[in-house]
Design a protein around this nucleic acid. Sequence first.
DNA 1: TTTTACTTGCGAATGATTCTCAACTGGGAA
DNA 2: TTCCCAGTTGAGAATCATTCGCAAGTAAAA
Lengths: 139, 139
Amino acid sequence: MDELVERGVRITRQRRVLISVIQNSPTHLDATALLAIAKQQDSGINLATVYRTLALLKNCGLIDELDLMHLEGEKHYYEAKTSSDHCHLACFGCGAIMEYASPLFEKLKRKIAADSGFRIRVARLELGGLCKQCAKTTA
Amino acid sequence: MDELVERGVRITRQRRVLISVIQNSPTHLDATALLAIAKQQDSGINLATVYRTLALLKNCGLIDELDLMHLEGEKHYYEAKTSSDHCHLACFGCGAIMEYASPLFEKLKRKIAADSGFRIRVARLELGGLCKQCAKTTA
DNA sequence: TTTTACTTGCGAATGATTCTCAACTGGGAA
DNA sequence: TTCCCAGTTGAGAATCATTCGCAAGTAAAA
Ligand SMILES: [Mn+2]
Ligand SMILES: [Mn+2]
Ligand SMILES: [Zn+2]
Ligand SMILES: [Zn+2]
């Protein structure tokens, strides 16, 4: 939040609510789900504002955008960015989404940057497949 | 192609053309671009068939779907899958898309699978940032 | 307070992707 | 070879996510 103030971004009532919802959400939210939760605190919030705020936060590097293998439709999901990136494992069998962080992932990013001279601002590693449970079931 | 026959998938004129276009494309194609190129060989092809074929190939694991950081709109891009996965670097400055393959990436995938018991079918690593050139320019 | 550039709500507009259904066809069976 | 039909296609409508346009509202600097 202070991040935004420093950048001269105006803190509106709607933005305050949306940011809080995203930061406290235990799950990955799509725009509609985010709106539904935000409305509980500020019933007037509009879907267009949700999208505008998501774009703002994404540009500021405060949230990450995910596909989660489009397990249920073409929408995107969002989560607050944390210090170390984690990757997402999406199970085609049961639809579960798991997270996985590893120093090896950080190392890979550093190596890519070093090898290519690319300055990484966003890193997204998403895997699709079968979770332990489902892999067992499917033989 | 033989892959498909083995799976009992019917090889139609349209599918033959679409598969060939994807396999020979030097760039990452979205559905509309794919249609445009395919039409040069078979003018009757329809966009719905393009989407149906993309879904088919994706399910068979013959192509990968990419976001390329949605640098230009919410569409998706496709490319023929090759033996070793590579990641995609998308430059926010000039829009360039670079590819990068590394044994370290393969290693990370193996480690994730080993650690979590997840059976990986699709792996997508996409990075957004500034390419060497643009990083220099932007200070 | 006053001011004003930045935001918002609302509804319409876009763009991508999917669906419906009648007509068509690949490829196994006869 | 010809026949047959389950699987596939084209066309257009429908759906869904996301963006726009604009008048009205409001942070926050002065
Ligand atoms: Mn996550
Ligand atoms: Mn996407
Ligand atoms: Zn599962
Ligand atoms: Zn660049």
